[in-house]
Write a protein that binds this DNA or RNA. Structure first.
Lengths: 179, 179
DNA sequence: CTTGCATTTCTGTAAAGACAGAAATTAAGA
DNA sequence: TCTTAATTTCTGTCTTTACAGAAATGCAAG
């Protein structure tokens, strides 16, 4: 097992810090960063020593990364131990992350907004028309975002990248047509 | 001060819960939801009683919402107290939120990745070419996302919405051309 | 200047999350 | 089946965050 170069250390530490801002546990994010940079799959013990965290912590963090779907178990010939590797392709990785975040952060809200809009519709008497209007606008926005996500997700990576690169030009031309 | 209808209560509670998943404090998110649905600006005391949280908590949460830029102070004639109102336009609101999140969550990472890539470039000897390659790919991705964001942010709301609505069709046509 | 309300800051407590080390479980090879 | 290495789960501690209530500050009208 080679030692990590300095730049890798710096990156791993930063990624761990940012993880906390993204609602991901620091250790989880660090392990992910380590695996992402590592050409060979690593076993849990390696990860412990490289990052200096407890074995149990590594075990739980790896499970979380597997739940996210961005880390997989692999087995090396002649070695009983589990080894772990990250998804290597950046775009594929963020596609998976985006899908998972949508599932956890957007979909439940969308469902709630639909419920609430229903409730608002069934209200007796005058209710609160302003609140109702605002809620419906929010629902519209979430539906727009959710649809957009689903569409983009169906595209192959290359098309998606191209679309992102050209995003503004396309939008501008649409804007111009729209006027 | 009118009572809140049921659907509004349900929405506020849910929004508070989701806030925690988005890295936002529950009370902060609840206050935001309340103000978003409220036609009139509310004062701090109103917010306390509606949500049943401590005055100090409301005060701090309102400051955070003002830092985000999605809540403003307004003054009502004949009333010394501060009143607060949310940005009402959903798109405008998410534009601001997106800008703030980019500033907090993307930009620092972009800066770090550039640093690390520099370090990697200046390494003596062989270093770790694989890690270097992975880091550069990640950097490329973050630059792509950051540019895309900046471009979209400069568009007027209507154009952006149209672009989002048509997103998949555009991307598909690009993909087809690309082949 | 001072009185009284509005607001913020401070302080302590409660709750949640992160994490290490120990114990328990699983599974492979002898 | 027994042994041993590997992994997971459990338990307690420590740190961080959330929050209420109290104290302090700010500010406007008289």
């Amino acid at each position: 097992m080679k030692e990590l170069p300095d730049f890798a250390q710096h990156f791993i530490l930063h990624w761990g810090e940012m993880g906390t801002k993204w609602g991901i546990n620091r250790t989880v994010a660090q392990i992910h960063a380590l695996l992402f940079l590592s050409e060979e799959p690593l076993n849990a013990e390696d990860i412990c020593t490289r990052l200096g965290v407890a074995r149990s912590n590594v075990s739980n963090s790896l499970r979380e990364l597997q739940n996210w779907g961005i880390v997989k178990v692999v087995h090396l010939p002649g070695d009983r131990r589990d080894h772990f590797e990250s998804i290597k392709d950046v775009y594929e990785m963020f596609r998976i992350i985006a899908a998972e975040r949508k599932k956890r952060e957007i979909d439940p809200t969308l469902a709630n907004l639909r419920n609430c809009a229903d409730e608002a519709g069934q209200e007796k008497g005058e209710g609160d028309p302003y609140a109702k209007k605002q809620l419906e606008e929010l629902l519209g926005f979430f539906e727009l975002v959710s649809d957009f996500y689903d569409k983009m997700n169906r595209l192959p990576t290359k098309s998606a990248i191209k679309a992102i690169r050209m995003g503004d030009k396309i939008a501008k031309s649409i804007g111009a047509i729209g006027k």
